[in-house]
Design a protein around this nucleic acid. Structure first.
Lengths: 129, 129
DNA sequence: ACTTGACTTCAACATATGTTGAACCTGCAC
DNA sequence: GTGCAGGTTCAACATATGTTGAAGTCAAGT
């Protein structure tokens, strides 16, 4: 039924920062760029759901693999608040697929540059000069 | 012997830019950051060897795979001017190894985040709350 | 109710990766 | 030997990814 949510606990900027291992300023930065989302208290403070820290951890991994913050926000776009393990698995799968695609492309381009009398040989001191 | 080099032809900024597919300003940028090296004419103009355009092409690929310019300069550090195909192969191998290592790390970390009652489950509306 | 640590916004700074423009200089073709 | 396309440096701008500091506000325990 999924209707029995209760009030699943929220987290402040500082808590998300500790849970995700980044600075509070980075938490605000990620929120402003759509990697995580927040609701506001009556007093205008951000409150995050439990997925925020995890999103940030995945975001950091994705960044190290070469994705921009914009791309990561897009990757997370179809993730609900408090995502199910299935949703997380889908995101992880798409992330890995994207990165592996980039590696395949890297290898293919390198092969093209290396093989035969190819682009990298232009200007080499070869007999055919 | 390797002494018979002759004068293997050099390239201006504009030629390298065309050959590598980047802007002249980017060629100067890459030189200032050690991705490529230049000698100077009597009139202070840069002259590149034939490997410069290829270095830049490989650098662009490496950047798309997540390496910084500094890391790329380090990758190229032990590459001679006018590198042999063997040297290029070594660079390509180390580049691919580095990127594949990052992907392995990405997958391992994602698996850790996903599996069991792990980090990503903190804050989820689970019974153990 | 007060205190105090954590929150807010905003602007400035910092680093990485480039691009653009001004002002001036070179190299090569004629 | 001249013209001019293309080179030079330097500073400013631009975008991405954050951090820091000031000035003020909120929340939560006592």
């Amino acid at each position: 039924m999924t209707v029995l949510a209760g009030s699943p606990r929220t987290f402040s900027v500082g808590e998300v920062a500790v849970d995700s291992g980044v600075a509070p300023s980075a938490v605000r930065f990620y929120e402003s760029h759509g990697v995580i989302t927040a609701v506001r208290t009556a007093g205008n403070q951000r409150r995050f759901d439990g997925s925020a820290a995890c999103r940030i951890q995945v975001a950091k991994l994705a960044q190290r693999a070469g994705l921009s913050v914009r791309e990561i926000a897009a990757l997370f776009a179809d993730l609900s608040a408090d995502p199910t393990p299935d949703e997380w698995a889908g995101v992880a799968h798409r992330l890995v697929a994207e990165v592996e695609g980039r590696v395949r492309n890297l290898k293919a381009q390198l092969a093209a540059l290396e093989s035969g009398t190819r682009l990298c040989e232009i200007g080499r001191a070869d007999p055919a000069r």
